[in-house]
């Protein structure tokens, strides 16, 4: 408990200080609200529009989660496929790596062209953002599986199935979670971008409309909610990871 306070306290105080500074500076220097709204106004706007924002929040969260789930399915499948067949790996791995030089933001409007203004264009943008970290980290997880364990299992007469289920798969889990943590955080950005490019609702749409109307406090309240969503997703995955990998050595001890 004491240790927890010690880790949480400094960052909390710092955030509170920044908040106070924000409130004070915007009041004293009379900064126009479309440049930087007062922090209290952001919270007031948040409260006044709570039902509307709640609806947008749920929608954006749904898009992020659905996209993330599909990314996990596709990314892990591709990683397994590359692990099973070296030809698939030699063909796909360089392509997946090279695909990262394509600016995803520039590619996203194509998703709108293909899937229209409905929910699927948003989900496909989320997949564009999150597929890479999941596929590559899972694949690297497979690759770093201890070859000694595999050889030992072969001397014990292990089948290919045994090798995959009892050696490769558990070895790849830490890599998979590293990828999923990255993906979870950026999935929110993907969903918001998808909404920006064309949509009726969601926090992305809300912030875009608010910025068109130069309502700074509404923009900031949307951004605040998006960040909170990203943090919630990240913490959820981290919690899941700690449950699944609970019994293993903490990562900094893994090579001992």
């Amino acid at each position: 408990m004491k240790k927890q306070i010690k880790t949480v306290l400094p960052v909390t105080i710092f955030i509170l200080l920044l908040a106070a500074l924000w409130e004070l500076a915007t009041t004293v220097f009379e900064v126009p609200h479309f440049i930087l709204p007062r922090l209290s106004d952001v919270f007031i706007s948040l409260w006044e529009n709570r039902t509307l924002l709640g609806r947008h929040f749920v929608l954006t969260l749904g898009e992020a989660l659905l996209g993330l789930a599909l990314s996990v399915a596709v990314g892990v499948s591709v990683a397994i496929w590359m692990e099973r067949f070296s030809l698939a790996k030699r063909t796909l791995y360089p392509l997946i790596m090279a695909s990262q030089t394509i600016p995803i933001i520039a590619l996203s409007p194509i998703m709108v062209m293909w899937f229209g203004y409905g929910i699927w264009s948003k989900i496909s943008v989320v997949i564009l953002f999150t597929f890479f970290p999941i596929a590559v980290n899972t694949s690297d997880g497979f690759r770093t599986a201890d070859p000694g364990i595999g050889e030992l299992m072969k001397t014990m007469g292990a089948s290919k199935r045994d090798l995959f289920l009892k050696w490769k798969l558990p070895s790849a889990l830490p890599g998979f979670f590293t990828g999923l943590k990255l993906a979870a955080t950026i999935s929110v950005g993907g969903a918001a971008l998808g909404e920006w490019l064309g949509g009726e609702s969601g926090l992305g749409v809300y912030t875009k409309r608010a910025s068109n109307m130069l309502r700074g406090e509404a923009v900031f309240s949307g951004v605040l909610l998006l960040s909170i969503m990203g943090i919630i997703l990240f913490l959820t995955v981290r919690w899941l990871e700690s449950r699944v990998l609970a019994k293993r050595a903490p990562s900094d001890e893994a090579d001992k």
């Binding site: 201890d146 000694g148 364990i149 050889e151 030992l152 001397t155 014990m156 007469g157 009892k166 050696w167 558990p170 889990l173 990998l245 019994k247 293993r248 050595a249 893994a254």
Partner: peptide
């Protein structure tokens, strides 16, 4: 016989699975 393990091999490193008790 194919399936059964023929020798008992103890490698230089212990090669224990970190995810198993």
């Amino acid at each position: 016989p194919r399936k059964k393990s023929r020798i008992g091999y103890m490698p230089q490193r212990d090669c224990l699975m970190p995810w198993r008790s």
